[in-house]
Design a protein around this nucleic acid. Structure first.
Length: 256
DNA sequence: ATGGTGGATGGTCCA
């Protein structure tokens, strides 16, 4: 079972890239972030023509998440408990086959110490509370998405330069490691130990060409699922296309 | 310290 995640930065703009990638890579599950579409605008028919089911939870202009799967999903949850209609759309969960798939678009945080930064830390705490309440580390569960945190030095192009900056501050690393300690294994690091492997490059300053990236898109699995992880990869090819997303898709293969 | 680019929008906000 191949499970993938991709922040597409507008599904409207990126739909051709996404459909091409699905056809080429044939994941069983694709978790999408930043669809930037209300649910009435979601291109459901095009995914169905490609042989996929979709569950989506979006809003106008910002955020928005979706789970694309080749088999019918069940137990769908949209939004974290306690969120109202005015809250940003960053969480969707579905069961696909034997696996609980949690797809998150963790807030960016904008600037360390800002109000948005505090919201980011609080959001991660709420996510942890949800997992504690609704799931067990013994479940076959995967959490994937744009975490907006690189938590180790080898995950960023210049740890000294980025120290204390947004996406790499100690508070964010500590929050995300605390989430991990609930019972997750980073499936990418099961198979790749080296630095220089990134999933996001800023559009500005020719960051991609200059290899100035961060690994902030993750696929974490509970121990029983991680034990079945046979491979993991970041596909940088879509980042080279005309008008690319600033993120590359990440995928992990499980023996299921 | 600032700015660089891209998406949605129809002012700027967000990343």
């Amino acid at each position: 079972m191949l499970i993938a995640t991709w922040n597409v930065n507008s599904l409207n703009v990126r739909l051709p890239h996404v459909l091409d990638w699905l056809q080429k890579t044939k994941p069983n599950v694709l978790c999408i972030q930043e669809t930037k579409l209300t649910d009435d605008k979601f291109p459901k028919a095009q995914f169905e023509e490609a042989g996929y089911h979709c569950q989506f939870f979006g809003e106008k202009a910002y955020n928005g998440v979706a789970i694309i799967s080749d088999s019918e999903p069940s137990a769908v949850v949209k939004g974290l408990p306690g969120e109202g209609p005015s809250d940003s759309k960053r969480f969707i969960e579905a069961r696909v086959g034997p696996v609980h798939v949690v797809n998150v678009y963790i807030p960016n945080g904008q600037e360390v110490g800002s109000q948005k930064f505090q919201y980011k830390l609080a959001w991660i705490e709420r996510l942890k509370s949800y997992l504690k309440k609704e799931h067990s580390p013994d479940d076959l569960l995967v959490i994937c998405g744009d975490f907006n945190v690189a938590y180790e030095d080898r995950d960023v192009y210049d740890p000294a330069l980025l120290a204390g900056q947004i996406l790499f501050s100690e508070e964010e690393k500590s929050a995300i490691k605390s989430l991990m300690q609930w019972g997750f294994v980073d499936t990418f690091r099961l198979h790749h130990q080296e630095s220089g492997l990134y999933s996001w490059w800023d559009y500005r300053m020719m960051a991609f060409r200059r290899r100035m990236g961060l690994r902030i898109d993750h696929i974490w699995a509970t121990a029983p699922l991680a034990g079945k992880c046979r491979a993991s990869f970041i596909d940088v090819e879509p980042r080279r296309l005309e008008k690319p997303s600033d993120h590359a898709p990440v995928a992990s293969e499980f023996a299921l």
